[in-house]
């Protein structure tokens, strides 16, 4: 009995350590092994890989744009929520409350159907592509999450620090800029990475409004080839792509969390 007890944490640790490393390569390895076992399938897959890759580059583009836009807006909104004036605070609070509770899919549909397909700028017709609309939809969602993260991070700094900056003659904005925010960056990094990774996964929803991204490409490919095993492997490739993108982020997030909790 006592043997079992002492062994329990150890076995869990080794198993999770092994799995941790297996996780990085397991999915791509599965795809490669399977295409080597069934060469006709492998050949078909190799033909479609460039098409799938072009789809995935769209996912990455949407993620980068949405996270950049969302972070900028989110930090501003988070600070607005803490402003001493109600007419600054209230709009930000309402925005965050509404969009934090909204499903990503609903926001993507909203931006896709509400915005026009082209904009008239000084008499020039500029196209307004669907992927930009998806970026805006995801940016709205991530800005609401990031506003909450920013607000929480600022509030988590002890009030004594504010008092100390006041004693040193800092203005409120200077204190925020030089003392509070640098500490917030550290604290909000792990949750921010969670948001970034969930935005990366959210980009697959853009396929439902016709953006040519990985999920869309996989559906195209499987309709063109019409083989059940190809359909399976196409979706396994999709999962593998997202997994190899998001799993390292998740691992790093957990590492950072542990380090900050310990420190």
């Amino acid at each position: 009995m006592s043997m079992a007890v002492t062994q329990t944490p150890k076995t869990t640790k080794t198993s999770s350590r092994v799995l941790r490393y297996v996780g990085f390569v397991a999915m791509p390895l599965l795809v490669v092994v399977w295409s080597l076992v069934d060469l006709s399938l492998g050949k078909e897959l190799v033909e479609w890989i460039p098409y799938l890759a072009s789809g995935f580059s769209m996912n990455i583009l949407i993620t980068l744009c949405a996270v950049t836009l969302g972070t900028t807006a989110g930090v501003l909104l988070g600070l607005m929520q803490l402003a001493p004036f109600w007419f600054v605070r209230l709009p930000a609070q309402i925005y965050v409350q509404i969009f934090r509770n909204a499903p990503a899919l609903v926001l993507i549909f909203a931006t896709t159907y509400i915005f026009p397909f082209e904009i008239v700028l000084f008499g020039n017709y500029l196209p307004f592509p669907d992927w930009v609309k998806a970026v805006i939809g995801l940016a709205i969602l991530s800005s609401a999450y990031i506003a909450e993260i920013t607000r929480g991070a600022v509030l988590s700094i002890p009030t004594t620090q504010w008092e100390a900056t006041k004693g040193l003659g800092f203005s409120r904005l200077q204190a925020l800029r030089y003392v509070i925010l640098p500490q917030c960056v550290r604290r909000s990094l792990p949750p921010w990475m969670n948001v970034a990774s969930s935005m990366a996964m959210g980009t697959s929803l853009a396929s439902l409004v016709g953006v040519h991204e990985l999920m869309h490409a996989a559906t195209d490919a499987s309709t063109a080839v019409r083989r059940l095993d190809f359909t399976i492997i196409a979706y396994v490739v999709v999962m593998a792509a997202f997994f190899t993108l998001c799993y390292p982020i998740a691992r790093l997030t957990r590492r950072l969390e542990q380090r900050f909790n310990a420190g």
């Binding site: 999920m215 359909t231 399976i232 979706y235 999962m239 997994f243």
Partner: peptide, 21 residues
């Protein structure tokens, strides 16, 4: 393994995989 897989892949992809495959 399942937890890591499901947390790090989009729900939509899982749904399409389940439904189509």
């Amino acid at each position: 393994g399942f937890v890591e897989l499901t947390r790090n892949t989009p729900t939509l992809v899982q749904l399409m995989f389940s439904f189509l495959v």
